[in-house]
Design a protein around this nucleic acid. Structure first.
Lengths: 233, 233
DNA sequence: GTAATAGTGTCTCTTAGACACTATGAA
DNA sequence: TTCATAGTGTCTAAGAGACACTATTAC
């Protein structure tokens, strides 16, 4: 119907928050940004970062603002997309809250600065985060975000969001291996990603990474989908 | 952060609605359920069906309730999933509204009964709906829903949600052709869908549909994904 | 030199699409 | 019978995975 004829003259009022599943790769491990709650409920427990949507602010804008606040960066590089909304009654014991979850993928960022926000933010390896209890229904949100990220690497060029502006095929492969938790054949991987039109742009330069032949340096291309997709498993 | 420390003592309040993109196949054409608005704003214009989420009701439950109300059926067969949330300030000129959109896929349903709700609901071919102006940001929501449905047919067994409990391969092919707007080779299609494990269950019976050899009757299987996926284009 | 990583070539197997062909019904 | 639809077989081309081989660096 669109807002219309639900009687009790006034419509029901909800608090609306955005919650963020921010994923990054640190020291070769997939990590997620979590805060330790300083207040009840769930005081002392880990939770996804997030906060209230302001009255004159769109959902995407709220997510971007929160992402900047929690990481301490003005323009966070990477990718941000809406994940889904969670609004079971009782998910927050204080009031009726609908939370719009966002998924952010970012390259290795500086350590979040403590004290900027009420809760201390920190990077946590996703395997640890999945095992630990999280506040509210955040375990579910995190699981949904992870699965979304894993699926999107297959058919979209999103893996580059985990990389700095310039990167090598080996770095990109490490992204896939970390997110999927699976080893990939370096030779076939190389052929596939360099063969996918618009995925990678050759900068013409090379870079030496420890031992071995120097690797070509690429930037992300303008493709929005991967043809053919890369296969998990 | 989770609901926490945003000051102006009270948190901002929003109205929350669910809006439905209900797709079905009628007379070989993909159609969407639209209502004609009886009130301002956008009076007389078409809109997606939907309504306020009630104070003690989850989002999925609200979507199910609205779907039942708008179609006039108690248990609507098919598929219902969350599509995304839309909450730009100003999308509803009366108040700040966050709308959680749902995508429903249903087999051919009876004509929605007029008069049950404030607005008259009707099936509209999607091609017409995409051309006409829709209230609020519903044109965008509809486009997103369509693209989601098209994409999901590729890698999920969701096409069966458009079919009655028992159906033939030709009926299923018509679903794909209508949603994708594309002809498919009946012979290759047959081989692929019958070959995908868990997609279709042979009932052992056949059915004669006009001329031609009788077709085997299938039920949907319990697969949750299609391996290998069917390819568009 | 050896070790290690980057990148190419090639082989095999699977799958997609094109389409010939068979099966079984209605008119 | 003819025609239309259901369903199978087969051919070809393209992609996936396995892995030999070459290229270029550090040590």
């Amino acid at each position: 119907m669109g807002p219309r004829d639900y009687t009790p003259s006034a419509y029901p009022r909800f608090a609306v928050t955005v919650d963020l599943v921010v994923l990054t790769l640190r020291t070769g491990t997939l990590q997620v940004l979590l805060v330790e709650r300083g207040e009840e409920p769930f005081r002392g427990q880990r939770a996804l970062p997030g906060g209230f949507v302001r009255p004159d602010e769109g959902l995407d804008a709220a997510a971007e603002r929160e992402l900047a606040e929690e990481t301490g960066l003005r323009d966070v590089p990477g990718h941000l997309e809406q994940l889904g909304s969670y609004g079971e009654p009782g998910r927050d014991p204080r009031m009726r809250v609908v939370s719009v979850a966002y998924l952010a993928l970012a390259p290795d960022l500086p350590e979040p600065r403590a004290g900027t926000d009420a809760d201390a933010a920190d990077w946590v390896p996703v395997d640890d985060a999945l095992g630990a209890p999280l506040a509210f229904d955040h375990a579910r949100v995190l699981a949904d975000g992870l699965e979304r990220a894993r699926a999107k690497l297959e058919y979209s060029p999103l893996a580059t969001a985990f990389c700095p502006p310039e990167f090598t095929v080996a770095q990109l492969r490490l992204v896939y291996e970390s997110v999927w938790g699976q080893r990939l054949d370096p030779r076939n991987f190389h052929r596939k990603v360099t063969g996918a039109p618009g995925f990678l742009v050759d900068t013409g330069r090379t870079r030496t990474e420890g031992r071995g032949r120097p690797a070509t340096v690429y930037r992300r291309g303008d493709a929005t989908a991967l043809h053919p997709p890369l296969a998990r498993e």
